[in-house]
């Protein structure tokens, strides 16, 4: 465990907690894409299949449980909570995210480190995580007005993946056999998807104006 990875995990945890806090306190999910949340729940469900088989550390198991419970709770809140669901704007959240699932699965069947069920599901979850933010970014572009909690949520998600890239660089230089091209390329693609959001986020922060994404 290195500082980049710990910081990455904490940032990732913060992003999920910010979102849960927003939905739980103001009982609203305005500006949040349910599709992205469903994709994230699927990412964690397919990535943490080894939750009960491979014990790595208490930290690892604890974090996996937190991510699983929080991501499914967020989906439940938006879909079933009597007050929150009213603020879900399904007419705007129209990204056909099922079209992301199949290509990621097919790609995982073709490009993986080992042709086993667990490894293919793990690789699928990596590819899916890389594109899971797309419905949310499309929704942000559509609704234009980004409330700062949603902006912080997306920012923290991007920051977590950027820190993971530093973690992979660190591990590459410190651990002789640490080579995971699939993880690195997928993580890089994911981070690049956030690049333009970061640009506009910093612009709005620097000029102290409301965050607006170009249509």
């Amino acid at each position: 465990m290195n500082i980049f990875r710990l910081a990455g995990d904490m940032t990732h945890l913060a992003s999920v907690l910010v979102l849960l806090l927003k939905i739980h306190t103001i009982k609203s999910c305005a500006g949040i894409s349910l599709k992205t949340q469903e994709l994230y729940a699927l990412v964690f469900a397919t990535r943490y299949l080894d939750l009960f088989t491979d014990y790595i550390s208490l930290y690892n198991t604890l974090m996996k449980l937190i991510f699983l419970v929080s991501s499914f709770s967020i989906v439940w809140y938006i879909r079933h909570h009597k007050i929150v669901r009213r603020s879900y704007d399904k007419d705007q959240d129209t990204f056909r995210h099922y079209f992301l699932v199949l290509p990621c699965f097919l790609l995982a069947l073709v490009i993986n480190e080992k042709f086993t069920v667990k490894e293919i599901m793990w690789t699928f979850s990596l590819y899916l995580e890389a594109v899971a933010i797309l419905p949310q970014l499309v929704l942000l572009q559509r609704t234009r007005n980004i409330d700062n909690l949603t902006g912080q949520y997306v920012f923290l998600l991007g920051a977590y993946r950027s820190l993971y890239i530093l973690n992979w660089i660190y591990r590459y230089f410190t651990e002789p056999h640490y080579v995971h091209w699939i993880t690195w390329i997928s993580g890089l693609v994911q981070t690049l998807l956030y690049a333009d959001f970061f640009y506009y986020y910093f612009q709005s922060w620097k000029n102290n104006v409301k965050l607006e994404l170009p249509a």
Binding site: D54, I56, N60
Partner: peptide, 10 residues
Amino acid sequence: VVTGDSHDEL
């Protein structure tokens, strides 16, 4: 224990 191929990252 972390075997070689298992993934130790979240």
